[in-house]
Nucleic acid binder design. Structure first.
Length: 198
DNA sequence: TGCCCGATTAACT
DNA sequence: GTTAATCGGGCAA
């Protein structure tokens, strides 16, 4: 049985935390699955919501690491982030896709589809499947309704350019599990850098 | 106050 | 491949 992640896990650079999250188990109110795709956002990164300084929306990013940053995307969808980077460097990791494993019936009902591959393959989709909304904004990641467990075995992690951004679009700060069928999009075969993580 | 646009998705052609 | 849906944040005026 793998260990439940404590807040200290997130008290590191987003570039360390993001690849370490691949293969971890994320549950929200007992529903969720295995993390297969995330993206890192650093404060010095023009694509990060924290780039222009604190506002009402991104305030939690400027607080201590280990908390949830939830925001509305395109006025329609919710997106879930894990706040990282203590010491004034406001960063977060965007949760982009999970392999659904726990609470499949609940996720199918919330999503309105039985296609397991489309349940949680995308930041908006996984929030809908896991029931994440603005009510989880600012909540600690090591307490209910969240439960996150470290991966139990070695995982092949690949990195590539992030999705859906126009600023700093060249930075390879998207991380995923190599070959997963549950990615929101495949990684570019040529550009992707691969490495093995334990 | 007004305007533009976005860390998206699903339903089109 | 293209586009509508839908609305708050951020910036100019």
């Amino acid at each position: 049985m793998s260990a439940r992640l404590r807040r200290g896990f997130f008290d590191r650079s987003v570039h360390e935390v993001a690849p370490d999250l691949i293969g971890a188990l994320l549950l929200v109110n007992g529903v969720g699955g295995r993390l297969v795709e995330v993206e890192a956002y650093h404060q010095t990164d023009a694509a990060a919501h924290s780039f222009r300084g604190p506002t009402e929306r991104n305030a939690v990013m400027f607080g201590p690491p280990g908390f949830a940053y939830v925001y509305r995307s395109y006025g329609i969808h919710w997106c879930l982030n894990f706040v990282c980077e203590r010491k004034g460097s406001a960063g977060a990791v965007l949760i982009r896709a999970i392999e659904p494993t726990v609470g499949l019936a609940t996720m199918r009902r919330r999503r309105g589809t039985s296609d397991q591959r489309l349940l949680c393959s995308g930041p908006g989709r996984l929030c809908e499947a896991l029931g994440v909304t603005g009510t989880q904004y600012g909540l600690p990641l090591d307490a209910s309704p969240f439960a996150i467990f470290a991966r139990s075995g070695a995982v092949d992690v690949v990195a590539g350019p992030r999705i859906g951004i126009t600023k700093a679009a060249d930075l390879p700060w998207r991380y995923g599990e190599k070959g997963s069928r549950f990615l929101s999009k495949p990684f570019p075969a040529v550009a992707a850098a691969a490495y093995r993580s334990t």
